[in-house]
């Protein structure tokens, strides 16, 4: 796995974001540097938001906070949340799926019919429908802490597609149950738990890993979509001042909030919404690199075998060579 360049590149990107995020906070605290304007020869050249340049690779926001700093501080929330959502979802859905495939074979059709209905509900709409009461700051402030809200959001987002994933795992398991070797081990007296442990899990390990990667990617996208709806990770700070209300703000610097609260500036200062989305895209790309690398490390010979099968040596003999060989064969027979 560690020898696959794709896996290493993907892992390096994610590790860079995570370690960089903690290191940034360790060194410079959790407030990014702020510049109100850039001076050149004693004159102010550019005020906030400052466009991207060498000192500020991703520019600054409308208050002069460095975008790169904000993005780095926020990286840990978004990435850990996405990984946690997908992990929790798999932890719940995979045992459920096995149970569905093993013990509830007869009920599989109606359970999958029920889960199928989720395929008509756009995931983002579903998530926002459920999370609005949790994340939108009520009149008079939140009553729970930010960590409680993040935990609730992670659990809710994990549960959203548990039925779909469970049915998927269940039908995979059901296909495996029809295999002869599983029937053989069942005849030999293996219990259902043993079949799951010794046959189903090892057999589906790669599929489950790919499924996990897909869930992480999906979670990143849903988080970004929720950001567009002003539902940020860990809650949205809403200013209820009718005159000087601030726009809805994210409480942490996580990426969906950075994107959602700055989307209005797309035409004036495109770097403000674009850079968080770019970082999200990079993370998704990193995950898909890791998946590709993992798959290649698990079945590395597939490609080579298919190529080598085609290169069968064709022996070209001309007429005299052929006769020579034939004579040899004939001699062999005669002897």
């Amino acid at each position: 796995m560690w020898k696959q360049p794709y896996f290493v590149i993907g892992f390096a990107i994610l590790a860079f974001f995570l370690i960089g995020s903690f290191a940034y906070e360790w060194f410079w605290g959790n407030v990014p540097r702020q510049v109100r304007f850039i001076m050149e020869n004693g004159r102010a050249v550019e005020g906030a938001p400052i466009s991207p340049q060498w000192a500020y690779p991703f520019g600054t926001d409308q208050f002069g906070f460095d975008m790169l700093g904000k993005l780095m501080i926020g990286a840990k929330y978004t990435i850990i949340a996405a990984l946690a959502v997908a992990a929790l979802r798999m932890l719940i859905a995979v045992p459920l799926g096995y149970m569905l495939g093993t013990y509830l074979q007869r009920h599989r059709s109606w359970v999958s019919g029920l889960a199928d209905s989720l395929h008509y509900i756009p995931l983002t709409v579903f998530a926002s429908f459920l999370l609005t009461p949790v994340l939108w700051m009520p009149e008079g402030g939140f009553t729970n802490t930010i960590w409680e809200r993040i935990a609730i959001q992670v659990v809710v987002m994990a549960l959203l597609t548990v039925p779909i994933v469970a049915v998927l795992v269940g039908s995979e398991a059901a296909i495996l149950y029809q295999k002869e070797y599983i029937e053989a081990s069942r005849i030999l007296g293996a219990s259902r738990l043993r079949i799951i442990r010794k046959h189903l899990i090892p057999h589906m390990r790669e599929k489950l890993a790919v499924l996990y990667g897909q869930q992480v990617m999906e979670t990143f996208i849903v988080l970004a979509h929720l950001g567009l709806l002003n539902l940020f990770l860990g809650g949205t700070k809403v200013s209820r001042d009718p005159m000087f209300g601030d726009p809805p703000m994210s409480i942490s610097f996580e990426w969906s909030g950075l994107f959602g609260s700055s989307f209005r500036y797309l035409h004036g200062a495109p770097w403000m919404p674009l850079s968080p989305v770019l970082f999200i895209a990079l993370s998704i790309l990193a995950v898909s690199f890791m998946m590709e690398g993992y798959l290649r490390s698990k079945n590395p010979k597939v490609k080579k075998r298919s190529l080598s099968a085609k290169k069968e040596e064709v022996v070209n003999w001309n007429r005299s060579q052929l006769r020579e060989k034939m004579v040899q064969v004939k001699d062999l027979h005669d002897m």
Partner: peptide, 24 residues
Amino acid sequence: LKFIFSIIGILLVSGLPILLSGLL
């Protein structure tokens, strides 16, 4: 059957915010 179960699923989902705020 599939049609009916899908409709039931959608209806069950539509009430979920109540269940969630109750759980909170």
